[in-house]
Simulated scan of single mutants.
Amino acid sequence: MASSRRGESLERAVEAIALVDHHVHGALAGDVSRREFEEMITESDRPVPSWMTFFDSQLGFAVLRHCAPVLGLDPHPEPDTYLARRNRLGADEVNRRLLTAGGVGHFLVETGHRGDEILDPARMAAVTGRPADEIVRLEAVAEAVAAEGVEAAGFAAAFETALWERSRTARGLKTVVAYRHGFDFEPGPPTLAEVTAAADRWLWRSEEAEKVRVDDPVLLRHLIWKGIERGLPLQFHAGYGDPDVDLRRSDPLLLRGLIELAEPRGVPFVLLHCYPFHRNAGFLAQAYPHVHFDVGLAVNHTGARSTAVVAESLETAPFAKILFSSDAWGPAELHHLGALLWRRAMTRVLSGFVADGEWSEAQAVRVATMIGAENARRVYGLGEAA
């Protein structure tokens, strides 16, 4: 009986944490069809085959189990029933219910991916009544500079000016070098001559197409090092993602050279998601003072198995180096599930430690609060919760 009461007490404490979602994207601004919704609950970028549904996945089942009650349905409805209810409520009401139900106290919103389809930080704050600050994507700034027109010789200076201005009120920066090239790049900063030559090649390609993504490893290195000079926390997508990423080249261990070169700068490096390399990320977080990590994206996509992923994230890294994120983009279901599944996983894992006598309940509550909110507040300079 005493053990049961302790478990309930820990669960209440974890539920009460005003989470800081330190890496998230905006919720959908409008309604979507079933096909569009299903394409947003998978990392695949291919059309959904006619003989299957992405509701038949850990994430799909989690939506039907945990989001349906928030929208006024019993758990486990049929997908068509769920989506019909979603459409009747409309995007504004769905966003209001699901975004507030997660209990997030602060959002750090990365705006570089399909930003015209989602709520920007100001609108996320308006819907939730919680602060929402921006994380600026380095590659998006470079591509905007190119789109505005710049000569190769002036690219480096133009990017630096744009980055400083674009991130004037941002809380952090992000790179998607894992998608554009992989982590197996030369770790040191390129010379100005190298940057100019690479910009010449890239801008020439840009003239031949409507838009060309920055994927030259020299330019990507330049963006990263300018980001380090900017001094804001720098996020790296690592591991699991859509097929645009070569998973073999997105193991964060490949960043070790860059991590060591950048260490004297003291700029926080935050490794995002990391699955299935989250244990490798835990090693890096233990070894290097400026490295932190999360398992954000994996929590949603592993659904009923997310407890195992969260447990593995707690194995070797100091608890002050682990952060919470959802990496939700689009459907507000992903924002809600990111928080709900993380809270459930932390409660189950930590309750086990307490029940086994390995941890005290006070230690468990303190660690959950660190990971859920306090670590991000320290890393990003957010101050105390309101």
Rank of each mutant, 00 (worst) to 15 (best):
G372C: 11
M370G: 13
A368R: 00
A368E: 06
W342F: 14
L341P: 06
M370L: 15
E361T: 10
M370S: 14
A362E: 15
R348D: 06
G352C: 06
V365L: 02
G352K: 07
V349C: 08
V365A: 14
F353N: 07
T347L: 08
V367C: 10
E361R: 10
R344T: 12
G372T: 03
A345E: 01
A364V: 08
M346P: 05
A362F: 00
L341N: 11
V349G: 06
M370A: 15
S351F: 11
T369V: 08
V349D: 01
A373W: 03
A368M: 10
T347R: 08
T347H: 11
V365K: 00
R366H: 15
L350M: 15
R348K: 09
M346N: 03
G357M: 10
A368N: 05
E358S: 05
G352H: 08
L341R: 10
G357A: 12
G352F: 01
T369R: 13
G372R: 07
T369L: 14
A345H: 04
G372L: 06
A368T: 10
M370W: 14
A373R: 10
A345W: 01
L350H: 03
W342A: 06
V365S: 05
T369H: 12
V349T: 10
F353H: 13
A368P: 10
M370R: 14
W359Y: 14
L350E: 06
A345L: 05
V365T: 08
R348N: 02
V365H: 02
M370D: 15
Q363E: 13
D356Y: 04
V349I: 11
S360W: 11
A355I: 10
